[in-house]
Nucleic acid binder design. Structure first.
Lengths: 127, 127, 127, 127
DNA sequence: GTGGTCTAGACCACG
DNA sequence: GTGGTCTAGACCACC
């Protein structure tokens, strides 16, 4: 799997797994019907606890992105692409909104906010 | 006080207090020598726990933004303005960086990230 | 075979096979001496794992509902009809009991439980 | 708390907690704004693991039945009553539907199903 | 004190 | 082999 976990960015690990699956489906990197790696295998690959993977998978299932069958495995559900695109949008919007709101709460003007954002975005372009 | 607390934006309450003082000083809305409200009074006004205010004040004091004088209260320190401007910059940069990193981890292109950000910034202009 | 498997109704697949054989015998749709399809064939027909069919057959055998003769196949045992009628009764009672208990644990009155049940039973009459 | 756990009825423990809170709200036994017992306290009372309570509370929160604030506790959310009534209905209907479907899959007539259900319901009336 | 996350390890049911 | 549940215990952030 092409996932990577960053333990120090404040986003819970299970949420990182959740998002990466979601985004991969939104991207068409994962297609409906495909199997996800087993809980244990993905846990091994990412060097995290199986329970953590399990939690991510459960969250995917609750949102109908994934279908999980005991004894068989976990596969991408039929309508997943649409759901994942909506999810991706929701997640990103929410992040953006939070940061903007926090900046505004501190009396910053929108122009200043935008400038800061672009500076930060640009400063890593080389990486 | 002209502060406002939002319990649902993910930023810890003590951090919101901390930031709002810091930004007010950076803004010159609060000037060196001015007194902050007492812990209890501010807690009452904002309807939050005094411990939370206390923690914010402690953090302000640790960074030499305020001075607390026993029996008198808490006042903005002399060199606060410079410190606060640096702090403001640091805080905002860090927020921006986090959000950008999360978006990139999800395979988004910078252009898409920027577009999303601007959409979100613009969508609230009327408010 | 006239069986059908529903992967999404909570009843394990092997149990569905087990029950359908049992109920067919109780019904006289299957008679003593008749052969059941081979494990592999039934698995193919129902598009399920042979292990699953095997498990169902084993359970049928343990309760003397079928006899398996090496090299020949699996047939309905002599005394099966009586056993199956008792089994059918046991299974259904148990299902009913479970659901009633769960509803009662949630503080529902028996009258409410009955009404719900009948509504649900009636609502599918047309189908 | 007036909850009770039954480890042997097939319903996961966290789900039992979830349901009992939901049903209590639907009943008006718990009202919007009320605090639930803390995770640790309820775990102690029910003699289960705090993680299990936590999972139930998380599920309540995901469905907007409960609001949980770090460091403060968990309280019944504003619109909870309506949600809980819908949830209660959903849960019960689903149980009923499952059992009816299973019975029908086994070639039972609706009249027989109903008779069985009523027998089972009546047989415990005295308890 | 509160809730949230994560780990480790056990046990179960299912295919 | 698979996923699901539960326990025990640790650590963190917050109030």
């Amino acid at each position: 799997m092409f996932f990577q976990i960053n333990s120090h960015n404040g986003v819970p690990v299970y949420e990182q797994v959740y998002r990466q699956v979601t985004f991969a489906v939104a991207n068409d990197s994962l297609q409906a019907g495909e199997m996800l790696p087993s809980v244990r295998q993905l846990a091994r690959e990412l060097a995290i606890n199986p329970n953590t993977v399990s939690r991510a998978y459960r969250q995917l299932q609750e949102r109908d992105i994934v279908e999980s069958i005991r004894g068989t495995g976990v596969s991408i559900a039929k309508g997943a692409r649409g759901i994942c695109r909506a999810e991706r949008s929701r997640i990103l919007r929410q992040s953006m909104r939070q940061i903007i709101e926090a900046a505004r709460q501190s009396q910053l003007q929108d122009i200043e906010i935008e400038k800061l954002f672009q500076t930060e975005l640009g400063s890593r372009k080389g990486k």
